[in-house]
């Protein structure tokens, strides 16, 4: 059984790198470039985990996160915010809105992979 990851980011090169990382871990991957597309993609097929960028055109990460959390049917979706803003307020805002975790750009690829695996309850996961 393969977990599905939805990658949401407006920077194509970052998406590319994330796709590579996730595919390498054996996850199914879908990726979109903005918040609206992200919600459509979730409606279409519920992913197990979303890697969600904050600063995006149309709908930003917080709004997407909030929208997903207000729908009880999507309760099981894990969300990891990818934030460029290092300030604590921003991170806490994400957590308050229902994100499960966050990573700060530029992130360590290993750390990210570990976080994703842990979030999905895979055995070798270790907390960050």
């Amino acid at each position: 059984m393969s977990h599905e990851i939805l990658i949401v980011d407006d920077a194509p090169n970052i998406v590319l790198s994330l796709e590579f990382l996730m595919k390498k871990e054996g996850f199914a991957v879908r990726s979109v470039g903005d918040g609206e597309e992200a919600l459509r993609a979730v409606e279409e097929k519920q992913p197990d985990l979303i890697l969600l960028d904050v600063m995006m055109p149309k709908k930003n990460g917080y709004e997407v996160c909030e929208a997903i959390r207000t729908n009880p049917a999507w309760k099981g979706i894990r969300i990891i915010m990818l934030t460029a803003k290092g300030r604590e307020v921003e991170q806490e805002k994400g957590l308050a809105l229902g994100a499960d975790d966050y990573v700060v750009k530029p992130f360590s690829t290993r750390e990210l992979v570990l976080k994703v695996r842990a979030m999905l309850g895979l055995e070798d996961a270790t907390p960050a």
Binding site: A11, N13, I14, S17, L18, F20, L21, K24, M55, A84, K85, G86, K105, P106, F107, S108, T109, R110
Partner: peptide, 21 residues
């Protein structure tokens, strides 16, 4: 900071990928 971090993120991510693979 966003504008700077975006290319930085790509650079770091791909550098690590190259290193690890």
């Amino acid at each position: 900071s966003h504008e700077l971090r975006t290319p930085l993120t790509s650079i770091r991510a791909f550098s690590e990928i190259l290193r690890d693979n």
